[in-house]
Write a protein that binds this DNA or RNA. Structure first.
Length: 275
DNA sequence: AACAGACCCTGAGGGC
DNA sequence: TGCCCTCAGGGTCTGT
Protein backbone atom coordinates (compact mmCIF):
# COMPACT_ATOMS: atom_id res chain seq x y z
CA UNK A 1 0.00 0.00 0.00
CA UNK A 2 1.85 3.04 -1.21
CA UNK A 3 2.20 5.87 1.28
CA UNK A 4 4.27 9.00 0.80
CA UNK A 5 7.68 7.26 0.61
CA UNK A 6 6.47 4.66 -1.86
CA UNK A 7 4.75 7.27 -4.03
CA UNK A 8 7.88 9.42 -3.97
CA UNK A 9 9.94 6.44 -5.07
CA UNK A 10 7.55 5.74 -7.92
CA UNK A 11 7.63 9.43 -8.86
CA UNK A 12 11.40 9.46 -9.15
CA UNK A 13 11.48 6.40 -11.37
CA UNK A 14 8.61 7.65 -13.54
CA UNK A 15 10.31 11.02 -13.91
CA UNK A 16 13.46 9.37 -15.27
CA UNK A 17 11.45 7.14 -17.59
CA UNK A 18 8.77 9.47 -18.89
CA UNK A 19 9.80 13.12 -18.94
CA UNK A 20 9.96 14.41 -22.48
CA UNK A 21 7.73 11.70 -23.93
CA UNK A 22 4.60 12.62 -25.84
CA UNK A 23 1.32 10.76 -25.46
CA UNK A 24 0.14 9.35 -28.77
CA UNK A 25 -2.94 7.48 -27.61
CA UNK A 26 -4.52 5.85 -24.59
CA UNK A 27 -6.55 2.77 -23.78
CA UNK A 28 -8.88 2.63 -20.82
CA UNK A 29 -10.30 -0.77 -19.99
CA UNK A 30 -11.86 0.07 -16.65
CA UNK A 31 -13.71 3.34 -17.00
CA UNK A 32 -14.64 3.88 -13.37
CA UNK A 33 -11.04 4.81 -12.58
CA UNK A 34 -11.47 8.04 -14.51
CA UNK A 35 -12.92 10.68 -12.21
CA UNK A 36 -14.17 14.24 -12.78
CA UNK A 37 -14.29 14.00 -16.57
CA UNK A 38 -15.81 11.62 -19.06
CA UNK A 39 -13.51 8.98 -20.52
CA UNK A 40 -13.82 10.54 -23.98
CA UNK A 41 -12.91 13.96 -22.63
CA UNK A 42 -10.02 12.51 -20.68
CA UNK A 43 -8.57 10.78 -23.71
CA UNK A 44 -8.97 13.70 -26.08
CA UNK A 45 -7.36 16.13 -23.67
CA UNK A 46 -4.20 14.12 -23.00
CA UNK A 47 -3.45 13.06 -26.57
CA UNK A 48 -0.50 14.91 -28.07
CA UNK A 49 0.59 16.23 -24.66
CA UNK A 50 4.16 15.96 -23.48
CA UNK A 51 5.17 14.89 -19.98
CA UNK A 52 6.90 18.05 -18.75
CA UNK A 53 7.43 16.95 -15.17
CA UNK A 54 6.02 14.74 -12.45
CA UNK A 55 5.43 15.98 -8.93
CA UNK A 56 3.80 14.66 -5.80
CA UNK A 57 1.42 16.06 -3.25
CA UNK A 58 0.97 13.80 -0.25
CA UNK A 59 0.18 10.41 -1.79
CA UNK A 60 -0.98 11.90 -5.10
CA UNK A 61 1.14 11.82 -8.26
CA UNK A 62 0.81 14.82 -10.57
CA UNK A 63 1.76 14.41 -14.21
CA UNK A 64 2.22 17.86 -15.73
CA UNK A 65 1.09 17.59 -19.35
CA UNK A 66 1.34 21.08 -20.81
CA UNK A 67 -1.79 22.92 -19.74
CA UNK A 68 -3.34 19.77 -18.29
CA UNK A 69 -2.48 18.09 -15.00
CA UNK A 70 -3.14 14.38 -14.58
CA UNK A 71 -3.57 13.51 -10.92
CA UNK A 72 -3.20 9.83 -10.00
CA UNK A 73 -3.78 8.10 -6.68
CA UNK A 74 -2.51 4.53 -6.46
CA UNK A 75 -4.58 3.70 -3.38
CA UNK A 76 -3.50 0.28 -2.06
CA UNK A 77 -2.42 -1.70 -5.07
CA UNK A 78 -1.80 0.62 -7.99
CA UNK A 79 1.41 0.00 -9.90
CA UNK A 80 2.98 1.27 -13.11
CA UNK A 81 4.92 -0.77 -15.63
CA UNK A 82 6.86 0.48 -18.62
CA UNK A 83 5.88 -1.65 -21.60
CA UNK A 84 5.09 -1.55 -25.28
CA UNK A 85 1.60 -1.31 -26.82
CA UNK A 86 1.98 -4.69 -28.49
CA UNK A 87 2.61 -6.46 -25.16
CA UNK A 88 -0.10 -8.85 -24.00
CA UNK A 89 -2.46 -7.33 -21.47
CA UNK A 90 -2.01 -8.90 -18.04
CA UNK A 91 -4.89 -9.50 -15.70
CA UNK A 92 -5.64 -6.34 -13.68
CA UNK A 93 -4.05 -3.97 -16.18
CA UNK A 94 -6.66 -1.28 -16.68
CA UNK A 95 -5.06 1.60 -18.55
CA UNK A 96 -2.31 2.38 -21.01
CA UNK A 97 -0.68 5.56 -22.19
CA UNK A 98 1.16 4.94 -25.46
CA UNK A 99 3.96 7.33 -26.33
CA UNK A 100 5.24 8.46 -29.71
CA UNK A 101 8.59 6.71 -29.14
CA UNK A 102 6.94 3.28 -29.18
CA UNK A 103 6.90 2.71 -25.43
CA UNK A 104 3.90 2.73 -23.16
CA UNK A 105 2.93 3.01 -19.53
CA UNK A 106 0.56 0.38 -18.17
CA UNK A 107 -1.42 0.78 -14.97
CA UNK A 108 -2.06 -2.34 -12.90
CA UNK A 109 -4.44 -2.36 -9.95
CA UNK A 110 -5.86 -5.55 -8.45
CA UNK A 111 -8.58 -3.86 -6.45
CA UNK A 112 -9.43 -1.12 -8.91
CA UNK A 113 -9.29 1.53 -6.20
CA UNK A 114 -6.81 3.82 -7.93
CA UNK A 115 -8.03 7.03 -9.55
CA UNK A 116 -7.09 9.19 -12.55
CA UNK A 117 -8.29 12.78 -12.64
CA UNK A 118 -7.60 15.51 -15.16
CA UNK A 119 -7.33 19.15 -14.13
CA UNK A 120 -7.24 22.04 -16.57
CA UNK A 121 -5.62 25.40 -15.80
CA UNK A 122 -7.59 27.23 -13.16
CA UNK A 123 -9.15 24.08 -11.79
CA UNK A 124 -7.70 23.69 -8.33
CA UNK A 125 -6.59 20.30 -7.15
CA UNK A 126 -7.41 19.69 -3.54
CA UNK A 127 -8.01 15.98 -3.74
CA UNK A 128 -9.08 15.41 -0.18
CA UNK A 129 -6.00 17.15 1.13
CA UNK A 130 -7.95 20.13 2.33
CA UNK A 131 -6.89 23.65 1.53
CA UNK A 132 -3.24 23.12 2.32
CA UNK A 133 -1.07 20.05 2.28
CA UNK A 134 0.90 19.57 5.43
CA UNK A 135 3.66 17.08 4.83
CA UNK A 136 5.90 16.70 7.86
CA UNK A 137 8.94 16.54 5.58
CA UNK A 138 7.97 19.80 3.87
CA UNK A 139 9.80 22.96 4.92
CA UNK A 140 6.46 24.72 4.87
CA UNK A 141 5.00 22.30 7.42
CA UNK A 142 3.29 24.43 10.04
CA UNK A 143 4.05 22.81 13.35
CA UNK A 144 1.93 25.24 15.37
CA UNK A 145 -1.10 24.67 13.17
CA UNK A 146 -0.59 20.92 13.46
CA UNK A 147 -0.49 21.18 17.26
CA UNK A 148 -3.69 23.24 17.27
CA UNK A 149 -5.52 20.75 15.07
CA UNK A 150 -4.54 17.81 17.26
CA UNK A 151 -5.35 19.62 20.51
CA UNK A 152 -8.87 20.57 19.48
CA UNK A 153 -9.79 17.08 18.26
CA UNK A 154 -11.49 14.43 20.35
CA UNK A 155 -10.66 11.66 17.91
CA UNK A 156 -8.03 9.00 18.56
CA UNK A 157 -4.59 10.24 17.53
CA UNK A 158 -4.36 7.46 14.99
CA UNK A 159 -7.44 8.75 13.18
CA UNK A 160 -6.07 12.29 13.30
CA UNK A 161 -2.75 11.27 11.75
CA UNK A 162 -4.51 9.35 8.98
CA UNK A 163 -6.50 12.49 8.10
CA UNK A 164 -4.68 13.96 5.11
CA UNK A 165 -6.06 17.43 5.78
CA UNK A 166 -4.24 17.50 9.13
CA UNK A 167 -0.95 15.95 8.09
CA UNK A 168 -0.29 14.58 4.61
CA UNK A 169 1.51 11.48 3.49
CA UNK A 170 1.07 9.18 6.46
CA UNK A 171 -0.84 5.94 5.99
CA UNK A 172 -1.44 2.98 8.20
CA UNK A 173 2.16 1.73 8.28
CA UNK A 174 3.87 5.01 9.04
CA UNK A 175 1.28 6.14 11.57
CA UNK A 176 1.93 3.00 13.62
CA UNK A 177 5.69 3.53 13.41
CA UNK A 178 5.42 7.23 14.23
CA UNK A 179 3.30 6.61 17.32
CA UNK A 180 5.59 3.84 18.53
CA UNK A 181 8.65 6.03 18.20
CA UNK A 182 6.86 8.94 19.87
CA UNK A 183 5.66 6.58 22.63
CA UNK A 184 2.02 7.61 22.25
CA UNK A 185 -0.86 5.12 22.40
CA UNK A 186 -2.93 5.22 19.15
CA UNK A 187 -6.25 5.39 21.03
CA UNK A 188 -5.41 8.52 22.98
CA UNK A 189 -7.64 11.44 22.07
CA UNK A 190 -6.02 14.47 20.50
CA UNK A 191 -7.13 16.81 23.26
CA UNK A 192 -5.43 14.66 25.93
CA UNK A 193 -2.00 14.76 24.33
CA UNK A 194 0.55 17.29 25.57
CA UNK A 195 2.15 19.83 23.29
CA UNK A 196 5.49 18.23 23.93
CA UNK A 197 4.14 14.85 22.81
CA UNK A 198 2.58 16.35 19.69
CA UNK A 199 5.93 17.94 18.86
CA UNK A 200 7.53 14.56 19.30
CA UNK A 201 4.94 13.06 16.94
CA UNK A 202 5.70 15.72 14.33
CA UNK A 203 9.42 15.11 14.66
CA UNK A 204 9.16 11.34 14.53
CA UNK A 205 6.79 11.39 11.57
CA UNK A 206 9.34 13.48 9.67
CA UNK A 207 12.22 11.19 10.60
CA UNK A 208 10.26 8.06 9.69
CA UNK A 209 9.20 9.46 6.31
CA UNK A 210 12.67 10.78 5.51
CA UNK A 211 14.28 7.49 6.30
CA UNK A 212 11.63 5.59 4.36
CA UNK A 213 12.09 7.83 1.30
CA UNK A 214 15.83 7.27 1.55
CA UNK A 215 15.30 3.50 1.51
CA UNK A 216 12.75 3.59 -1.29
CA UNK A 217 9.70 2.92 0.85
CA UNK A 218 8.44 -0.36 2.27
CA UNK A 219 7.65 -3.50 0.35
CA UNK A 220 5.08 -5.38 2.36
CA UNK A 221 3.36 -7.26 -0.38
CA UNK A 222 5.63 -8.79 -2.96
CA UNK A 223 5.62 -6.26 -5.75
CA UNK A 224 7.44 -7.65 -8.74
CA UNK A 225 9.21 -5.47 -11.26
CA UNK A 226 6.75 -2.63 -10.82
CA UNK A 227 8.35 0.75 -11.42
CA UNK A 228 9.95 1.86 -8.20
CA UNK A 229 8.03 -0.16 -5.69
CA UNK A 230 10.66 -2.37 -4.13
CA UNK A 231 11.77 -0.55 -1.02
CA UNK A 232 13.81 -1.67 1.92
CA UNK A 233 12.19 0.25 4.76
CA UNK A 234 10.18 -2.79 5.87
CA UNK A 235 13.37 -3.91 7.60
CA UNK A 236 13.20 -0.76 9.73
CA UNK A 237 9.64 -1.29 10.93
CA UNK A 238 9.51 -1.65 14.71
CA UNK A 239 5.89 -2.63 15.27
CA UNK A 240 3.90 -2.73 12.03
CA UNK A 241 3.45 -6.37 10.91
CA UNK A 242 5.29 -7.56 14.05
CA UNK A 243 2.39 -8.80 16.18
CA UNK A 244 3.45 -11.49 18.63
CA UNK A 245 7.10 -10.55 18.46
CA UNK A 246 9.04 -8.81 21.24
CA UNK A 247 9.20 -5.01 21.27
CA UNK A 248 12.69 -3.98 20.14
CA UNK A 249 12.89 -1.56 23.07
CA UNK A 250 11.38 -3.40 26.06
CA UNK A 251 10.71 -6.98 24.85
CA UNK A 252 6.97 -6.77 25.62
CA UNK A 253 4.93 -8.68 23.03
CA UNK A 254 3.69 -6.43 20.22
CA UNK A 255 -0.11 -6.34 20.01
CA UNK A 256 -2.37 -6.05 17.03
CA UNK A 257 -5.64 -4.23 17.68
CA UNK A 258 -8.12 -2.16 15.75
CA UNK A 259 -8.20 1.64 15.99
CA UNK A 260 -10.16 4.01 13.79
CA UNK A 261 -11.19 1.01 11.71
CA UNK A 262 -7.59 0.12 10.90
CA UNK A 263 -5.37 -2.79 11.86
CA UNK A 264 -3.03 -1.28 14.43
CA UNK A 265 0.26 -2.52 15.88
CA UNK A 266 1.61 -1.21 19.18
CA UNK A 267 3.73 -1.95 22.23
CA UNK A 268 1.47 -1.76 25.30
CA UNK A 269 4.41 -0.94 27.54
CA UNK A 270 6.12 1.75 25.51
CA UNK A 271 2.83 3.32 24.40
CA UNK A 272 0.76 3.99 27.50
CA UNK A 273 -2.93 4.85 27.30
CA UNK A 274 -2.33 7.57 29.87
CA UNK A 275 0.67 9.72 30.31
C1' DA B 1 -19.07 21.19 12.84
C1' DA B 2 -17.21 17.04 13.93
C1' DC B 3 -17.13 12.56 13.53
C1' DA B 4 -18.62 7.62 12.47
C1' DG B 5 -19.71 4.34 9.16
C1' DA B 6 -20.72 2.58 4.46
C1' DC B 7 -18.84 2.02 0.18
C1' DC B 8 -15.69 0.83 -3.64
C1' DC B 9 -13.05 -4.05 -5.15
C1' DT B 10 -10.59 -8.45 -5.22
C1' DG B 11 -7.58 -11.96 -3.37
C1' DA B 12 -6.13 -14.28 0.62
C1' DG B 13 -7.01 -17.09 4.32
C1' DG B 14 -9.89 -19.56 7.68
C1' DG B 15 -13.62 -22.84 8.59
C1' DC B 16 -15.95 -26.76 7.34
C1' DT C 1 -10.54 -30.19 -2.91
C1' DG C 2 -13.44 -26.51 -2.90
C1' DC C 3 -16.99 -23.50 -1.49
C1' DC C 4 -18.45 -19.75 1.50
C1' DC C 5 -17.48 -16.16 4.54
C1' DT C 6 -14.72 -12.44 6.37
C1' DC C 7 -11.22 -9.23 6.17
C1' DA C 8 -7.98 -5.63 4.36
C1' DG C 9 -7.63 -0.61 3.18
C1' DG C 10 -7.57 5.48 1.39
C1' DG C 11 -10.47 8.59 0.45
C1' DT C 12 -15.18 10.11 -0.50
C1' DC C 13 -19.83 10.32 0.43
C1' DT C 14 -23.72 10.06 3.48
C1' DG C 15 -25.84 10.06 7.89
C1' DT C 16 -26.07 11.51 12.76
Amino acid sequence: MPELPEVETVRRVLAIQLIGKTIQSSIIRYEKMIKRTSVVDFQSRIVGKKVDSISRKGKYLLFHLGIETLVVHLRMEGKFYLKHPEDVWEKHEHLELAFTDGTSLRYHDTRKFGTFELYAPGETFEGGLGEITYEPIDEAFDRQQFIQKVRKSHRPIKAILLDQSVIAGLGNIYVDETLFRAKVHPERRGNTISIKEIEKIATESRLVLEKAVELGGSTIRSYTSSLGVTGRFQNELFVHTHAGEPCPVCQTTILKTRVAGRGTYLCPTCQKRRK
